[in-house]
Amino acid sequence: MLSSNEKAVQQIDLRLKHLREDLVRFYSAFTTNPKESLANIIVAYEILLANPLVTDDLRAAAYKVREFTTIEVMGRCGTPVKPDSEIKLGDTYQASMDELGKSYRRIVEEQNRKREEYLLPGKNKRRPFKKPESLLR
């Protein structure tokens, strides 16, 4: 029988696995066919946002990637699209992809910290500072 800490660790691991799969689906949505890429990226974006671990930073980066994809695909199809207000002057597709990766790493790091707390209860908690006996005299 698993302890409550072991169950919590398993839950963290499962959530991280699902987030990783959702991000892989998002990255894999791009194909050589622009229209197919657009459809895939929109669906993958919605699946990614449904993940409970997604933060505002990751959501914003994924949105920018989706917008850049839409602009590119629609431009190739002969329908120019202006970027919406979330895309700032100087933003690039590559910078948005980099933001997405950084946001994901922050989520993983935070979840790993939580995981360690469950695996090593008491070891991560700070103990009050005690002066050595020699200094008390």
Rank of each mutant, 00 (worst) to 15 (best):
Q10K: 07
K17T: 12
P132L: 14
H18F: 11
N40Y: 07
N5Y: 02
S134N: 08
E117N: 05
K88R: 10
N40L: 05
N40M: 06
P121F: 04
L49F: 04
K114T: 07
D91H: 08
R25V: 08
S134H: 14
I87H: 03
R105T: 12
D57I: 03
T31K: 10
L119A: 05
E133L: 14
K131P: 01
D84V: 06
V65F: 03
G90V: 04
K17D: 13
E99K: 10
L2A: 10
D13K: 11
A62T: 03
T31F: 03
F30D: 07
L53Y: 06
G78A: 07
D98L: 10
R20H: 13
T79A: 10
K7Q: 14
H18T: 13
R66D: 01
V108M: 01
I47Q: 15
L119N: 05
T31D: 10
K88P: 02
K17E: 15
L23P: 01
S85Y: 12
I71P: 00
Q10H: 08
K64H: 06
Y104T: 00
Y93H: 09
T79F: 09
L89W: 07
A61I: 06
H18P: 00
L120K: 12
V54Y: 00
Y118V: 01
M1S: 10
K123W: 05
S96G: 04
K102A: 11
K125W: 06
S37T: 15
I107Q: 00
L58Y: 05
D56A: 10
F30I: 13
I12N: 02
S4H: 06
Y27C: 06
A39N: 12
D13A: 11
M97Q: 09
T55W: 00
Y45R: 06
D56L: 11
T70M: 12
G75Y: 07
E117A: 08
R137D: 14
I42D: 11
I87C: 04
R76F: 10
K123A: 09
I71V: 13
Q11D: 09
V9L: 05
Y93Q: 13
C77M: 14
M1R: 09
P80N: 08
L120A: 05
A39K: 07
P52Y: 04
K82S: 13
T69C: 07
Q94C: 01
D91E: 03
M97N: 07
R15T: 01
V24C: 04
F26L: 06
P83V: 14
R127D: 04
C77P: 01
L53D: 03
L135Q: 13
D57Q: 12
L135S: 14
A44Q: 06
S37G: 05
C77S: 11
L14I: 07
S134D: 14
K123D: 11
K125C: 05
E6W: 01
L38V: 09
L53T: 02
S103A: 15
S103E: 05
L136Q: 15
V81L: 15
K7G: 02
R126A: 13
L89N: 08
L14Q: 14
